[in-house]
Nucleic acid binder design. Structure first.
Lengths: 126, 126
DNA sequence: ACTTTTATTAACGTTAACGTTAATTTTTGC
DNA sequence: GCAAAAATTAACGTTAACGTTAATAAAAGT
């Protein structure tokens, strides 16, 4: 199949597929002299795996480091272990973000209270 | 004073001052035929107020909507009320972000558990 | 007068993941 | 054998707030 059909099957746009190719994430199985990209089921499966990993929240950069492991190891075990690592890192980062935001929330409240007081003092004074 | 001194006094770079000018946030008090920007204490005060509002977490866009109010109203009351509004919006947005991140955290944990189980099943099977 | 410092505008770079033209070529339907 | 659909590469646009050259001009110091 060509790029349009692959795109439709995978629920992405041709632009996305070419972009992934530019990142070395997804190569066409064949490129005739005409210049058209031709794909097989294997590339569709690969693209669907990319989508699945994106769903898990991995960046394309993380995906490119994880994806080769799925090919080395047909059971996908090595790949899954690596995905697990990435997800655990994400969990930690998420916790840090939540903590930082919570901290920021307190500062916001403090500032709100301070400015509110400042207004109260001046609007209802002698 | 010229741009370099103003920058130093306010703890920013000349580039920042020119950038603010391009946004209409801070105009020089005088511009001779030579092309140099000249500033007075008034502009320094304005720049310091910009910095203070940035410290509160306002974006430059928000600052440009808030700053004029400080000039209309010498007591700064109108400006402070507006800042209060902005901060309360920020508080709400922060709460939403925290909630979304917390939700994301649960999904992450669920995915981690699922993949972990997947690994356990296959690595220690018959 | 000459050197050093400071200023000027212009314009690209930074992040992620593509979207959106535009100009050209190939395949396909009839 | 031709028109319409689909593909090609190239290149700019998107966000925020500047950082970083580069080439040039003016000011200040001696």
């Amino acid at each position: 199949m060509r790029i349009g059909e692959l795109a439709e099957q995978a629920g992405v746009t041709p632009r996305t597929i070419r972009y992934y190719e530019s990142l070395g994430l997804l190569e066409p199985s064949e490129r005739e002299g005409t210049g058209f990209r031709y794909y097989t089921e294997a590339e569709l499966a690969r693209l669907q795996k990319i989508n699945a990993l994106k769903e898990l929240g991995l960046s394309l950069e993380e995906i490119s480091s994880v994806l080769p492991l799925y090919l080395e190891d047909p059971t996908g075990l090595t790949g899954k272990r690596k995905v697990l690592e990435v997800l655990q890192t994400h969990l930690q980062e998420t916790d840090e973000k939540i903590e930082a935001l919570t901290q920021f929330r307190w500062e916001l409240q403090a500032n709100i209270a301070r400015i509110q007081q400042c207004i109260d003092e001046r609007s209802g004074n002698s």
